[in-house]
Design a protein around this nucleic acid. Sequence first.
DNA 1: ATAATGTATGAAACTGATTTCATATACCAG
DNA 2: CTGGTATATGAAATCAGTTTCATACATTAT
Lengths: 330, 330
Amino acid sequence: MPTISDVAKLSGLSKATVSRVINKHPYIAKEKRERVEQAMKELGYVPNPSARRLRGSTTSTIGVIVPRIVNPFFSYLVNSIEQEAYKNNYQVLMFQSNENKDKELYFLNLLKNRQVDGLIMTSIENDWDVIQPYTEFGPIVLCNEYLMHSKAPIVRLDQAKGAYIGTKHLIDKGHKKIAYCTGGLFAEDGKDKDRNHGYQQALTEAGLSIQTNWIFINKHTIDDGKKVMRQMLAMDERPSAIFTGSDEIAAGVIMEAKENGVRIPEDLAVIGFDDQPIAEIIEPKLTTIRQPINELGEKSVEQLIMLMSSKDADYKQIELPVELLVRKST
Amino acid sequence: MPTISDVAKLSGLSKATVSRVINKHPYIAKEKRERVEQAMKELGYVPNPSARRLRGSTTSTIGVIVPRIVNPFFSYLVNSIEQEAYKNNYQVLMFQSNENKDKELYFLNLLKNRQVDGLIMTSIENDWDVIQPYTEFGPIVLCNEYLMHSKAPIVRLDQAKGAYIGTKHLIDKGHKKIAYCTGGLFAEDGKDKDRNHGYQQALTEAGLSIQTNWIFINKHTIDDGKKVMRQMLAMDERPSAIFTGSDEIAAGVIMEAKENGVRIPEDLAVIGFDDQPIAEIIEPKLTTIRQPINELGEKSVEQLIMLMSSKDADYKQIELPVELLVRKST
DNA sequence: ATAATGTATGAAACTGATTTCATATACCAG
DNA sequence: CTGGTATATGAAATCAGTTTCATACATTAT
């Protein structure tokens, strides 16, 4: 494993000069630069990042925290972040927090120790008060996360509008008994709160009231969706439509509905959220709220790179629009 | 940001002693260890990994290379690797190679530079001759990859058997005109070669011959599957069954078939590969070859940890069984 | 009693890079 | 011709740890 000293020796120059060539300093004679480059190539030399970081230089690496990579929403998000970062000559390290506070903190330490130059968090497990101190060591951009009162740079989606237009669409189709299904708790802070808001607003505007036993909380997966459907089947008065927090839940609902002879959308209209690939696979194809995942990733990287380059650039809080995609399930 | 010197100063001991406490060396007086621990806590001290790595100690971090994280097969694989690593107190960094040789090499350098203690490669873009030298810096386990002539530690699936039992199943159902769809090139080395082998063997045993225009190569996605279906529709003599290289391709075939009034499985039997979630979502539910993804990940981590712990432990080449899962598409 | 071994600690060398400081030459202006 | 600036290079300090070497005391074996 060749070091900078080996390169220096072979080229007959000092370590300092070699370092300058590596870092593209001005004021190096052309002839010597070439000698150094030749020596580097000859030895197959690659600078040791640990050593560089120790001395304080950047890593051209950014980190991304996701809660679970198997969730397609996040794998697509990571993917778009990766593509955009690569265009800007940044490498991406991904890390799965599994919704675990300690793991999240472990990864934040990579920032503290300059393993990565900046961080995109697509989920946040600890309180912002705990995270915030780490911004001293490098910028952190929140992507798709909702924090009400923090002044962090955030790129997010207009969740309230998503829930509003989805619910409105169901109302326009003549539905009055509209169930609602959310990832988080109903009263919680964060994006779910905004979605709840949108749902409530649409109902209120239509003069409809909320039926609490039609509210399902803490649902995420296809299996959760199936469970929700079974719960609804057991009800005396069933809702005629359901707004779900993700396409996966919606898919679960539809699958279980079909098993039980419930026709979609005649007996039950279903609307999803995300516009994941599954939305076009399930039969009937899913009406859903499209989230611009690619743009979300791109904007986050854009923000992060801006914050990394100029020490005290102004962060922004960006909100991207969502849109209703009407297919066959409503 | 406190350093080891700060801890030494506060505890009134030397850096060497502090370092020994951190690394749990024997021969430290209990009283001094406690003084050091107290000082570390007081300062909120965290060792700087760059400095540690520079001097050669381990990172308790392993790397995983995947070609594309949006492919559910790989996101589930990474997930199982992550879970198993975490149980053994290892952190996982994932990296997407995008099937790009240079990106793969970049990540291999993390091993060279001790950023990670070991590496699991779920795909391999460069030749093994290029990769092999990196094993000097830490163990590399190939997971789900096929290399015919290398002596690397490999954990993989019995692809030949998968293709064989899949094709055999179609033959048993009475099909004689069986198309075949693969990810790689038909003649290529690696896992596709094994699958081709299985397909051919099953046909040969049944006295059927290969029809080259029913062989589709280099297919991966749902869209590819749709294209394959369109190609088949345009044929004078259509196959009555198709073996596909992944559930995604199979789903694409089925979706396009339904669009065009082709009944599954009456007009066309379709068999997938992987048993991804999509296999149970698509209608009719997909007959497929189940791959034990979790076990694949677990065994890979197991192998890697073994290789990392004892310098010259014997690597193994492990082959895991696949099984046929009959649903409704055949 | 002496040698050998185990326990315990610190000073200094070392890891592989970057950066500061010192120095030297070339070029241009006054 | 002298002084100032731009160009160009190297020696040595520095980053934050780990490891070697030296040293010292306490046990145990001969």
